[in-house]
Design a protein around this nucleic acid. Structure first.
Lengths: 148, 148
DNA sequence: CGTGTTTGGTTGCAGTTGCAACGATCTGAT
DNA sequence: ATCAGATCGTTGCAACTGCAACCAAACACG
């Protein structure tokens, strides 16, 4: 950790630059290939992994605001990629689940996503990537702790 | 690198979550302590490090859009934290430099920034942080390569 | 049972961002 | 010297984001 400030070595700055570059690259690919935004793609991914759930549950699962989830859900429902079944336990909420067509889309996207990840992170060997993920976890904890 | 997709291990996702959390934490601190946005803080930091320069140069130095730089420069000039001297070589551009007051602000912010960095990244030992920075550099190269 | 509070989801609105278009200036080729 | 094209900075505009207000349904508790 440097004791005098150099912006190029200031980690919040570096992290932001790199993350935004990666996000923009990925977002552009999803948009061009599938017409999906990142928020929509995240919902599809989670619904494919964990099955149908309420929007509330999706908020916790994806770290997104309920407004973002709401709008992504509307967009996906309009395209018939997800179906909103009434929730028998709670009339206020719906259970969101992938439609047949949503599953087909997912089967197409998932390999593309993994391939993109591999290309972006190609220069880093797998053992280091494991440590990278761990560091991200610890950074997240550190920042969360700072916000009480 | 997993071969089936798990959003929680998908690096573009993890990177985005962690980076946004760190950015929001830092942004809130700058706002509360100094009334500065991240873009404004970046200009102050670069001008303090490297001396006066044109907005164009600031764009390259901070990876920010020229619009963002323009608005940050206007905000800082309004608060008399930077001064816009005419550029003798080019009537279109100004040379931006820190004012006396800008320097005083910088002297206050820089230690706070470093301290915040240390708190957020406290759980990671310095040797690993060096590798972390290197990995960020390589990720950036990887993503840049992907965009041609 | 009411009635006050909480919760799931949507909509309104304000702030931020960046592309595109624009005026002004600079540069380079003729 | 002139004029086409590039460049610096600003402004207009559209997209995205998230807080706050809102409605409807659920819950809590006397």
């Amino acid at each position: 950790m440097p004791t005098t400030l150099k912006l190029d070595e200031f980690l919040p700055y570096r992290l932001s630059i790199v993350s935004n570059l990666v996000s923009d690259t990925v977002a552009e690919a999803y948009r061009a290939l599938f017409g999906l935004k990142i928020s929509e793609w995240r919902l599809v991914a989670v619904l494919a992994e964990d099955g149908a759930m309420s929007q509330q549950a999706l908020c916790g699962r994806t770290h997104m605001d309920k407004v973002t989830v709401s709008r992504a859900a509307i967009a996906l429902a309009d395209r018939r990629l997800v179906e909103r079944a009434p929730n028998p336990d709670d009339q206020r909420s719906h259970l969101l689940g992938l439609s047949e067509e949503g599953w087909r889309l997912y089967e197409q996207i998932a390999p593309e996503a993994l391939q993109m990840e591999q290309r972006i992170f190609a220069d880093i060997d797998p053992a280091e990537l494991v440590r990278f993920r761990e560091m991200l976890d610890r950074i997240q904890s550190g920042a969360e702790a700072l916000r009480e």
